[in-house]
Amino acid sequence: MNNSITINSIRFIVLILVQVLILNNINFMGYINPYIYILFIILYPIKNNRSLFIFLSFLLGLTVDMFSDSGGVHAAACVTIAFIRPAALKFTFGAMYDHQTVKFATAEFISNLTYVSILTIIHHFVLFSLEVFNTSEIILILQKTLFSSIFTIILCIFTIIIFGKRK
C-alpha cells in the first residue's frame, strides 16, 4: 500500500514536470502537442477510493493549467476521464476488470491500445472544446483532437511498454 502511494506520488510529479517543461514546447507542425500526463489517470491502481481518485485527477489537471495559463481546461478534461474510467475499463477488459486483476504491463496489446485510445480521445476532445470555446470552430476542435490524440496515444503506449517491463 505504502509502495503504491510512493509510486503514484512520484509519477504525479514527474509527469507534470515532463509535460510542462518538455512536451508543452514541442508544437509539432505549429500546434500539435502530446499530453502524456494523463498516464497518471490511465495507470492509477484499479482498486481505489473513487472520490479520492477524481479529486487527484482534478488536482493534476489544475497543476498543468497553472503552468500553461489555460484557466481550467485540463482540470475539466481530467475529471471527465477519471469519472468515466471504470466504464472504459469494463468495456475493454471485461471479465478481468470484474475480478480486479487488470495489469497494464502484461495485458494484451490490443486491449491496452483500445483503453488508452478511448480515454485519450475523450480527454482531448473536452480539452480542445473548452480551450477553443467556440462552437463555430468545431472543425478546428476535431482537427486538434485527432492529431494530438495520435501523438499522445503513441507516446503513452511506448511509455507503458518501456517502463512496464521491469516489474
Binding site: I54, D65, M66, G71, G72, A75, A76, L130
Partner: peptide, 28 residues
C-alpha cells in the same frame, strides 16, 4: 456529484481566464 462539482469549477476557471485580470487563482 463530486465529478459535477469539480467539472463546474474547472469550467468556471476557464470562463474566468477568458476575461482580463480575472484569472487570479490559476496562472503561472
Amino acid at each position: 456529484l463530486l465529478f459535477a462539482l469539480l467539472f463546474a469549477l474547472s469550467v468556471f476557471f476557464t470562463i474566468q481566464s477568458h476575461s482580463y485580470h480575472k484569472s487570479k487563482f490559476i496562472n503561472s
